[in-house]
Amino acid sequence: MLNTKANIADHDGFYAQLIEAHEGLDDAQSQALNARLILTLANHIGDNQVLSEAIDLVKSVSE
């Protein structure tokens, strides 16, 4: 089951590192980096059920 509780110990450190990873990239490069990151994390998760729940969740969020 998809974990929707807060789960990252140093969340501010993670967020800062994520933004820093994009520094100096143009839009296309940033999109490509995000895609690589998602695919890498998806592999780490591994469970198709969890990945499916995550995709459903983010598609339902209104902007």
């Binding site: 974990n3 929707t4 509780k5 807060a6 789960n7 967020y15 994520l18 933004i19 994009h22 990239l25 839009d27 940033s30 969740l57 983010v58 969020v61 209104s62 902007e63």
Partner: peptide, 18 residues
């Protein structure tokens, strides 16, 4: 991209505790 992530966090936060 920093704004896109920021807005994504805010959009998610309304319904999702994480």
């Amino acid at each position: 991209i920093s704004r896109i992530f920021r807005d994504a966090v805010l959009d998610l936060a309304e319904e999702n505790e994480f």
